[in-house]
Every structure is written in structure tokens, then in C-alpha cells.
Design a protein around this nucleic acid. Sequence first.
RNA 1: CGCCCGUUCGUCUAGUUGGCCUAGGACGCCAGGUUUUCAUCCUGGAAAUCAGGGGUUCGAAUCCCCUACGGGUGACCA
Length: 528
Amino acid sequence: MVIIKHLHFPSNLYFYTKFQRMIRVRFAPSPTGPLHIGGVRTALYNYFFAKKQGGKLILRIEDTDQTRFVEGAENYIQESLEWSGIHFDEGPKQGGEFGPYRQSERKNLYRQYADQLINDGYAYYAFDTAEELQKMRETEEAAGHKFQYDSKHRKNLKNSLRLSKDEVQDKLDAGKPYTIRLLFPEDEEIVFTDVIRGEVKVHSSNMDDKVIFKSDGMPTYHLANIVDDHLMEITHVIRGEEWLPSAPLHVLLYRYLGWDAPEFAHLPLLLKPDGKGKLSKRDGDRLGFPVFPMEWTDPKTGEISSGYKESGYFPEAFVNMLAFLGWNPGDEREIMSMDQMTEAFSLDRCSKSGARFDADKAKWFNHEYLQQYPMDKLVTAFKELLKKETIEEVCDDYIEKVIKAIKDRANFVQDLINSGLYFFKHPESYEEKAVKKHWRENSASHIGLIADEFEKCEGWNSENLEDIVKTQIEKHEMAGGKIFNGIRLLMVGASSGPHLFDILEILGKEESIIRLRNGIERLRSLNQ
RNA sequence: CGCCCGUUCGUCUAGUUGGCCUAGGACGCCAGGUUUUCAUCCUGGAAAUCAGGGGUUCGAAUCCCCUACGGGUGACCA
């Protein structure tokens, strides 16, 4: 590849003719805050696309707007993507031969292309200040007209199209601030093909002369994006639908710069679960689900937004759920690994319409992953959480038994703790409702009788225990339901949990009998 | 308001080249069963006249047009 560059051959062209063009895609977030799950999904699709075709995935940080810089945002983005299992081949951290990968570090690269556009007559200097334009916009709108910096207005504004060469040079020499704007054609249908949507047409008269170079010496997104995509030899631009309206501008930029444009694919947006509009930061905490992959603390306000990671989602489940919002493999599989999804991925299986986020389905995905999760990892995670309950020194075998007994009704590891804490400590109290419903006058004596039988039990396992209890129920003509539920109450402290005799087996003989005896005492005093 | 994109059960969607669609699956919901608990499990059910209206065709969810609705965008933001 290096040799080819010396020969001034664009390497892509070389590969295109010789073999097949090397696929290169990029995810290009702006570090203005935490990465939204919609962004994660875009990164994910880029990842699938690249991996499927043996191509490269590039991370590029688009930080051309210095005023919107947010402390910690870039780091957050990198960590979130890493946690999600989306790995990049090139980027600020991993480097690469097309670097640097932060636009702020490429600053001096862009100006020459803006100059080239001016020299070729495709762009011009504009000396109007932001305030002047704002004022004009307001007065025009007040009069019921729309204001655009376009073919109608540009001849009356302060720019190099109207001003004489000398006037322009004077202003430049005087150091007057200016922007560089792209000169849009007056009457032309701009057409391009979107991989997902097909042919998209926009008439040039509906576009205005976009600023491509700002007065602060930085390019705007539009210029930087095109220059970098070209220099980095990006073959496919897969991004959110919010970019579709400016795609014609990008197409034009490629043409004016004399470059081949990459393929475009505009993904549909993630929508709010309720109401209108796209999913936003506020929706998450309002509706009780995270909008961000990881927890984020706003450096200015200190405001905390919850994350999937901290809410107990497995990254594999998170990514699986996200991938299915706008894509599916075409068969009836739903639980798929990163590799399986990569294998099945294709852009023409992406839907065109926005997907409403569904928190219930997200939980279901995690439930499914919890069932499959490697036991040793589950035990480790469980122990971590157990520490927070100030319970330590429990052997792994015991934890494993507990997890096996209760995981099928849990969505998160945290659920395992919430619904299984009684396996690690005596019930502190007995749920009032359950007591009322299941505890009778004679419960104490009947269950006491059963406890006596338990003492004699040799083979302490679920089946034997069930036999013992059933035998006693028959022998003494006890009310079966009350006995079962009564014992459960004394073991759990509530009327929930797995099969009763499995609970007894796990708890063990000694502990079970203690709970029975203690419980009987406590409930007796309660009844009086 | 202009421009662009979209529209199949409540939600995610299958359906891509018109016929096997009396529209399939999943989540959620409801009912029954099992478990003498339950947030599990099993079985079943309701749920989309394919946004509406016009065409084209022997035949349309699938093609065309119009309307409605939804979304995006309209910065010296990305």
C-alpha cells in the first residue's frame, strides 16, 4: 500500500481494479455529550457491515465545534463502544495509517480544499457577520418570507461574488472575519442513490449556500466530513437519517472536489416509546429505562443519566436488542450473538421507518441471556452484589445451587439477589398479607409436627422431603395448602420463590429446621 | 411553512422479484393447565379490512398517482 502511495495511485482505485475494493466504514460521533443508544446502533451496523465483508471500521472524532466541547465525552464514547463489544480497527486510541483521527488534530488539512473550491469557482468568501444574518432572517420572516443564503439573496450580501476583487482583497488584508460558502447551482436536480432508500432527489433551489469554513478557522462538519472520508478512503457512509437532508450538499462537495463519492446508507431513527419525536435524553428517566449505554454524569450540572451497564444489562443482550430495532436476519431467530448477527447482516434488510423503543422487550432480551449465561460468570457477578448486602464468605457451590433454582424468573443478576436473599439470611419479617392468607390457628402445631419429622430425616433432598410432608398431611388430615404455604412463609418470609422442597433442600436440614422453629415462635407471639 | 424520508397487530417486525397471505413470528396482554406459592413452564386466545382513496392487472400488503398522518431537516451545531 505504501508503494502505491508513492506512485500517486489512490490505493482504493488500485484494489478496485486489481481485486475488489477494500471496504472501509467509519463511525464519526461528536464529543458533545454522552453517546445515545441510537448512536450505538449506528456504530453497530457499521461494525457488522465492515466485519461481514472483511473490511475496516474506523472511529473518527468530529470535534470541529470548539464551543460544544464537553469534558469526558470522548472518553465516554470510547468506553461505551468498548463495553458494547464494538471494536475499531483504527481510531484515536488504536491509531492507524490514516490518522490523526480527531478532526481538531487535522485542523490544518482542510483549508487547502476550501481554497481549491474558491479557485475553481465553487465557493466564495462571505463577510456578513452572524449577527447581520440573524437580523436579516428575522426581518424577512416577520414579513412572511423565508431567508436563505441562496441565489436570490447572495447578490445583495457582502461576499466575493458581489464585491470587486480589490474590495475583497482589502477586507482580507484588513483581517476582517469571513466564512467560506459553497456556491450552489441555481437550477439543478441533485440526485443520488441511498442504499436503503433508493434514489433521492433534491432541487438545488431548495438548498442554501452552506458555510464550509467558519470564521474561527475551522471547517464545518460538511467540509471536514467529506475531506476526511475521502482521505481515509471510506467506501460506505452509514449514518442516521438526520443527515439525509444534507446529503445532496455532500454529493456536490465530492463532485466539486473532483472525488468519487462513497455509497450512502441513511438509517431510520429510534423513536420515543410514547408520543412523538425521536428518542431523547429526557425520555429515559421519565419512562424508567436508560437512553445511554453507560451512566453519565454531566460535568457542568452534575446531573446523572442512567446507563444499561449499571442497570444490569449484559452487553451482549443490549447489543442484540439494539440491532433488532430496525434490522432482522430474515428468519425467525431473535437471540443472536455478535458473530451470528455479523454473518446475517446486510443493509438491505434494514427497515426504512423509525423504530419505537420498547423497554419490555429490552428486558426480555436480558432475561434470555441470563438463562444462557456461563454459570461461573453469574456466580462472580452474584457475589459482587452480595457484598453490597454485607454477605460474604459463601461458597460458590451454594451460590450456584441458588442461582439455578431462581434464575428462570429473573431478568437481571440484581433480580437474583432481590428474590433470593432469603437463601443467605433468615427472613427478618413475614409479609403481612401472606401471614393473613396462609397462617391459621393450628399452623404452629401442624408445622411443628412436620419439623419433628424433619429432624428424623436421613436423606435430605427435595423428593424425600415432599414425601415426608405429604405423609404427615394425610396422617393428620391437615389442610395441604396451608401447610405448604405456611412452610414457605417461614423459609422465605413471603409467598414466592421456586418449588418449596427445592428451597428446603438448598437451605439444608439444620437451617430449615431453625427457620421452622423460630418462625413458629415468632408467629405465635404475633397471633396473641 | 419549504424540502426530504416514511406508513403491516399496542410495540419490534416477516412479507423484497405481484398469486402458496383466509397476512407469519416475537415482546406485551388475556384465558386455561401444571406447580397445593410465584415473576417460571406448557397450551390456547384476542390483536393489523396491510394509513385512506383512486388506478394498473385475471390477480396487489407488494407497482403507479393523490390525500392524510408520522418523522427528519431548514445554524459560522454535529
